[in-house]
Design a protein around this nucleic acid. Sequence first.
RNA 1: GGCCUCAUCGUCUAGCCUGGUCUAGGACGCCAGGUUCUCAUCCUGGAAACUCGGGUUCAAAUCCCGAUGGGGUCACCA
Length: 458
Amino acid sequence: MTEKTVRVRFAPSPTGFLHLGSARTALFNFLFARKNAGKFILRIEDTDKERDKPEYEKDILENLEWLGIKHDEFFRQSERLEIYKKYLRELLENGVAYVSEESEGDRKQVIRFKNLGQKIVFNDLIKGEISFDTKELGDFVIAKSLDEPIFHFANVVDDREMGITHIIRGEDHISNTARQILIWQALSASSTDRGGELPSYAHIPLILAPDRAKLSKRQHGETVSIAFYREQGYLPEALVNYLALLGWNPGNEREIFSLAELIELFDLAKVQQSGAIFNVEKLEWLNREHLKKISNVQFLISNEVKKILRLREDNKTKEILDKIAPIVLERISKFGDIKEMAERGELAYFFQAPEYPKELLLWKKDKDENRTRERLIKIREILRGDLGGEASLGGFASKEIKDRLMALAEKEGRGEVLWPLRVALSGREKSPDPLALLEILGKEQSLIRIDKAINILE
RNA sequence: GGCCUCAUCGUCUAGCCUGGUCUAGGACGCCAGGUUCUCAUCCUGGAAACUCGGGUUCAAAUCCCGAUGGGGUCACCA
């Protein structure tokens, strides 16, 4: 049996930014095409002169590319008006369509499809058998004029012309399917040049907002657009992974996938039948998982920190950036979180000595200023290498230094020693552990900050 | 409202087709405990679901019917 080459299309209209739902539709089409060694066609359905905007098309193209969803062929309906006109004429000549005089609407004449009102049954790859009685559709409009086809018509003509074998789209199109099949059949009967079997349909469930309604720009704002997540600093691979998992799963418990792995595993039969609520928390988790996987994550984090803190490019800065990148990685789920860290003051102290109130130095279980000061002095002695005259043993923040600090902490109480040390170094009640801080700041800077703390307690 | 469609933890889901192995598994989130002081990470544990009602059957989350509930769609938009 020779199977026809799989050809699928993603057909957005440039009336808005690429949003979560359409991106997932594009993704499923793309995965299906790649999995089956077929072609993925991108077709811009810009037949609505009033609402289409070039910047929306640009946004769709850019974000699809960002996600890694590459098309094999590209079309724009506004450039194919002659083709629709040809078919329109043909249907008119055959009496399948007719020019109708209108009393309502903004045209006095439109082209309507002569609907015989038959029953349409099709087998949806995801939903199963679906049947419609097309009687209630009436003679629907297929074009405003010979030069202005509307969606249903242009869409079907192109699916025929482009040899589409599988139509994978959102289930909000289910009710459009009946009239599109009607048009398809009419075209099949009248045109001589292109035959073509009716494509298979696969209507995928919708992505829902937390209120269970279909995601829409109007109701749910900018959080529905891909660009929004891109700006927040999510990884495209995480978004692709999450979108794929919304309504599809491989049938086992695995959840982390690269695009290549998704292509390998994708199967329409495993697509869900009911809508799925978009959950940012799971996306954030997935993004964290992907952050851990990408090789240049430390470099990217360093750059981001440098940019946000407006740091100079010197060796010392670079050294610190390299050291804090892993620490930042542990605390973010997306690159955008770095900015928030900076705003909360969780970054600046790495690069300049912090200001803090004296009370912060005091550990909750021992608020005595003198004892705290004495402990800091002991810490200073250890760091200087003043204790026992063995300063030459190892470098700064070496195992010896750490062992001594911990020995002191064991003796005096961990919180009693480590808390004031951390505050002295970071000026904050929440930070990485003080030993790590010592390593990042270096001997000189650490001692400056400890001296400062000792002075504050004087 | 008509038509179409769907229904397992709060959320994403496995299991359903080919009934028994399901006292229903995993993940996110949440809660508790642990890991050198705080935070983060990590580890361990925990709470949490088969919408309801009939039927078929020795046996139903799984098959059938109905109810209820959710969603979609009803343009000279796509």
